[in-house]
Design a protein around this nucleic acid. Structure first.
Lengths: 185, 185
DNA sequence: GTTATATATTATACTGGTATTATATATAAC
DNA sequence: GTTATATATAATACCAGTATAATATATAAC
């Protein structure tokens, strides 16, 4: 379970509300770990019960009141331990579209269409995402206290996404060629 | 939800018990979609309620009795519709280790270690997995009725895993070099 | 002789992710 | 003037995935 550590990591940059965290997540971690705002609020509750964060209510006049969370020493300890401990384990891939490819022999034309659309989407994404995400990295590097020294690491996660998207496009292209050869000989 | 379609796809090859399906899953689909046997039995129940499959009890003397499932016409229809319909959607990546990389500035040495271990594991996997999986593909292509015409598609899913594992190794290597440059100047 | 593995299914309980909705107000866009 | 968007949080309910264990027997390995 990485969500609480993601939240700890963000709170370690600066105090934030659940709303703030949901927005930052959307701009950054979301590229490799999705979290709904409802999930974030639920998790913040749990983290406060564990003593990893504390919160205080902030009364506002022109906006709804908000609850500002701060990381505690205990939370910083948990974050550091998580970062330093434990063997690397990969998530099992869960690729719904590979399930369709696997059974593609039942519908070769549909599979070809699927692969073409996969290729197109990946090429688009590989051209667009990095720009947008790079902009986010530069933004947060400037905005967050001590942000500059993080951008090297943020960049790595961006690169990961980019090369995998490119690899998928290349793979789909190769599959398309093989399939086309099979289908009209 | 791809699990029921995965099961339909396998039952479309041949009648099977939940136990059979769990084993075949382990050897094949498992590379991109994991399913526990408990989940498979639960799903088969639901599919029978929907009329996608029918089952009959087979009494055995030297083994526990078993329940053999067969796909119905309705099930074949559902499989075909799933294969042909719908826009391509990628799963959101869920990479716990990228979460650690993202917050790596808090523990640069640990991150370096993580990346090294990532690189090693991927190189090992890229060397070993394809052999084992290729053996499975050849096995099932021979064993399953009409298996030969499927192996092209099965191969594609194997290739997908292989190129992504290689891409990850290459990425990790590049990250390691950047980090080493940063850490001992 | 004992242990591990293979066969075959089922039950239970938990947790994380998702979907949806409700509330309330200020500002910007049309 | 109305609609959409941004701010800010919370409640509810469902479903899928995970962990674990129970049951029962046959064979292979040590």
């Amino acid at each position: 379970m990485s969500l609480p550590y993601g939240l700890l990591g963000l709170l370690n940059y600066q105090d934030s509300t659940g709303y703030d965290l949901a927005k930052i997540f959307e701009d950054s971690l979301n590229n490799f770990w999705h979290a709904q705002s409802a999930q974030i609020y639920r998790e913040l509750d749990r983290m406060e019960q564990k003593g990893w964060v504390v919160s205080r209510n902030i009364v506002q006049s022109k906006r709804p009141n908000k609850r500002l969370y701060s990381i505690t020493d205990k939370g910083r300890g948990a974050l550091h331990q998580w970062l330093c401990e434990g063997a690397l384990e990969f998530e099992r891939p869960h690729e719904a579209f590979l399930m369709k490819v696997f059974f593609g022999a039942n519908a070769p034309e549909a599979t070809l269409k699927l692969l073409r659309s996969c290729c197109d989407m990946c090429l688009d994404a590989a051209a667009e995402y990095p720009k947008r995400i790079q902009a986010n990295i530069d933004h947060y590097a400037a905005v967050i206290p001590g942000g500059e020294k993080n951008s090297l690491y943020w960049q790595m996660t961006l690169d990961f996404g980019t090369i995998h998207t490119q690899a998928t496009a290349k793979w789909a292209q190769a599959c398309i060629e093989k399939l086309e050869k099979e289908l009209k000989p």
